[in-house]
Design a protein around this nucleic acid. Structure first.
Lengths: 226, 226
DNA sequence: AATTCTGTGTCATCGAAATGTCATCGTCAC
DNA sequence: GTGACGATGACATTTCGATGACACAGAATT
């Protein structure tokens, strides 16, 4: 779990990351809102610890505006102002928790862990065609419910075909999407990979049709074509 | 938003619901853990406010056991014991926040609103996969009930894998979530950490599968291959 | 302050598995 | 029939992951 700490007080710049690292969290540090913004752009964090007052402004304003764009990473505010009005302010603008300085490091750790745990668990999509299911997250393919293990290239080609069912895909397109720049467009790698893919999917009719001079496409052999 | 308040003190039985209703929350009241259990069975709540000490026991025990079954509704504990050890204890067993009595009603409202908004998206504090248990609070891992001691990085990687069981996780994702910005994405730290993790978990079949060219994932080796 | 210990990162090497190449065969369209 | 294109088996090459040994930093201990 990775956390961004945004803090300008030199003492806390040392203490807070140290405390969080002791809880096996990976910690990055930023000193200003501008720095934090850049770090948030570059990396994926599970939680952000924001000092309220920073050299370039009040962090609540920043968080508020990011929330407007749907930014959802949990935030813990560290604040020296312990008036209740300010606390309410912090929550109402999308922050998820706050801690009043001075605080016990154990408490900080507990709260950050609690916030980090609620990560957005997004389900990667599952592609289907005929009796073939391709689970992009698990990198698994099933035919008629039976698990079929594919090589990386084979998977990648099938994924591309399944994302455009019944469209004819040229060898060039396949090379461009499934191979890197080093691939030789003149070779017959695509043909070979298609052959291997067919061999793996021998659990039903051949769904991969060669379109002479054009490329390949997925098609159900029973269905009529144009 | 609907909230269940579990409280036996007659004074608070009046004051707490009144305060929450003033914030436009729908409030139900229970006086014992048994009553609460029934109410939770019948209705869906966005948040539960639990007094720590109730006539039929300490509510932490109840919450802890419900969490084991994946129950995820946010809980706010009201506690008279303000020692930090107790606070940490409350969190580590799946509670999401606590408030020390006596408290300001405004603060109660703020916290309940925050928890309700957060929704039941928190993950249960103990992750399980096959015969491996990972306690995020205690930072302990058990395989087949046997305690396995892990290094911080190893724990962190396992936690991330276990939070997305059977999903293939790229080295990049692992670096981003388990290492800080100083990590070199080109190095093979991830591979080495995986090797070490496997070595520690040698108490059963290898659950960590390398997916060539993509990353790693947790999988039960029972699945047949072709 | 010096020393040991512990955790973590780096590097080099090994070996297996994935993938590309090539030669040959089959087949489809005209 | 024939010429071009696709299919396929055998083989060569490359890549990638696993791992042992070592290096280094910081914490703990003396």
């Amino acid at each position: 779990m990775r956390v961004l700490v945004v803090e300008d007080d030199p003492e806390l710049q040392v203490a807070v990351p140290a405390a969080l690292r002791s809880a096996a969290l990976a910690v990055d540090l930023a000193g200003t809102i501008a720095d934090a913004d850049e770090a948030l752009f570059v990396n994926a964090y599970d939680c952000v610890v924001f000092d309220r007052m920073l050299p370039d402004g009040d962090s609540i304003g920043y968080v508020r505006s990011r929330r407007q764009d749907g930014w959802a990473v949990p935030v813990l505010f560290l604040t020296a102002m312990d008036q209740l009005a300010d606390r309410v302010d912090g929550f109402e603008h999308g922050g998820d928790d706050y801690l009043v300085k001075p605080f016990a490091v154990e408490e900080l750790i507990v709260r950050v862990l609690s916030l980090s745990r609620r990560g957005p668990t997004i389900r990667p999509p599952i592609l289907r065609y005929a009796d073939v299911e391709l689970d992009t997250g698990r990198r698994e393919v099933r035919r008629g419910g039976v698990l079929v293990t594919l090589r990386a290239k084979e998977f990648s080609v099938l994924e591309f075909l399944m994302s455009r069912p019944e469209q004819t895909i040229s060898r060039t397109d396949l090379i461009e999407h499934c191979w890197d720049a080093a691939a030789d467009p003149m070779s017959n790698v695509v043909d070979v990979t298609i052959t291997r893919l067919r061999a793996r999917l021998r659990g039903g009719p051949d769904l991969i049709q060669a379109v002479r001079g054009r490329g390949y496409r997925l098609i159900q052999p029973s269905g009529a074509q144009s």
